[in-house]
Amino acid sequence: MERILLQTGFPTSIDQFVAQYGTAIISTLTTIVLFGVAFIAAYYIGKTVLLHATERSLRARGFKEGVISLALSVVSILVLAGAVAVAATVAGFGTVLAAFATLGGALALGISFAAQDLISNFVAGIFIIKDEPFRVGDWIQWDGNEGVVREIKLRVTRIETFDNELVTVPNSQLANAVLVNPVANKTLRISYDFGIGYDDDIEQARAAILAAARTIDDVLSDPEPTAPVTDLGDSAVILTGRVWINPQQSSAVAVRTAFIEAVKKQFDSAEVDMPYPHTTLEGDVELNGSNTSSVA
């Protein structure tokens, strides 16, 4: 009995092996060959057509090399996944493929929820690189912050503050914020309010401000500096000194500080008063139970 089972379960000759497993082996080899041929054909055709089409399309639209490289990597992954799906279908793995597709969809949904901030930063980085609201070396301002852009990556942008601090900002924050780029244009106006006394001569003060502006090399002559009266304060008449610079060649911060210092020196030379805010008190003051004379 044991001898019969042994001969029935395990072939003892080549003829028995072929008779018992031949059909299964041929079917398996056929499936492997079909899968391999279909995968190679789908992958080669997809990579040849889609990669070239994607690259030509992005270059024609003026995308940067970083974006093009990223897009080609994503397309390569999609082509690989598509080739596997096509090959599995041709080889007759449709049921298995459907199960893996369902599992993959569930995993993708879970990952997308867990990494939504990362994905939003990633997408924002692509638009920043494409739209170029700022470039490396630009001075930008956003949400009460400011600094000089030192590096732009797909996920974050690194900015150096004027205190020499390196700040790493998620790209989604920059993409969603109201961002000011003072150095985007060829000219930039720098303004500062100077207060003079009500008894001082406005024309004399204006001449002093304009003279101070002309002493600064980085101040442009066209548009020319101006100093209009912009406000009548509680303690001073306000003249706003306005000068123009080329922000791509000059530092706005350095010009502003030099302008303020030069105007102060001009006011001192011309004896123009720069009053500080003060309050006048009028009335009677009682000390030690007795009335004193009124003070003003």
Rank of each mutant, 00 (worst) to 15 (best):
M1L: 10
I4R: 15
I4D: 10
L5A: 06
P11K: 08
D15K: 15
F17W: 09
I25S: 06
I26C: 02
T28L: 11
T30N: 01
T30V: 14
I32M: 04
L34Y: 05
L34G: 06
A38W: 01
A38C: 09
A38G: 12
A42W: 00
Y44C: 00
I45R: 15
K47H: 11
L51S: 13
R56N: 01
K64M: 01
S69P: 10
S69R: 14
L70T: 12
L72R: 09
S73F: 13
V74E: 15
V84I: 03
A85T: 09
A88Q: 05
V90M: 09
V90N: 14
F93H: 04
G94T: 03
T95C: 06
A99L: 09
A101L: 07
A101E: 03
T102I: 13
G104T: 15
L107C: 02
A108W: 07
G110F: 14
S112K: 04
A114V: 00
V123T: 09
V123A: 10
V123N: 02
K130G: 07
P133I: 02
F134W: 03
F134V: 11
G137Q: 11
I140L: 05
W142G: 13
V148W: 04
E151D: 01
V156R: 06
D163V: 01
N164R: 01
E165L: 02
V169W: 09
P170M: 01
P170I: 04
V178T: 12
L179S: 12
V180W: 00
L188Q: 07
R189W: 02
I190Q: 10
F194V: 04
G195T: 07
D199E: 15
D200N: 06
I202W: 00
A208S: 02
I209W: 05
I209E: 00
A213E: 00
L220Y: 01
L220V: 15
E224S: 15
E224L: 13
P228E: 02
P228I: 01
G233I: 07
G233W: 09
D234A: 14
S235W: 03
A236L: 09
L239T: 04
T240Q: 12
G241C: 07
R242D: 08
R242V: 00
V243L: 04
W244Q: 08
Q248I: 09
A252Q: 10
R256P: 10
R256W: 04
T257E: 07
I260H: 08
V263E: 00
Q266R: 02
F267T: 12
D268Q: 12
E271H: 08
V272W: 02
M274H: 13
M274C: 07
M274K: 13
Y276A: 11
P277S: 04
T279S: 15
G283E: 15
V285Y: 06
L287F: 08
V295M: 08
A296E: 15
A296K: 01
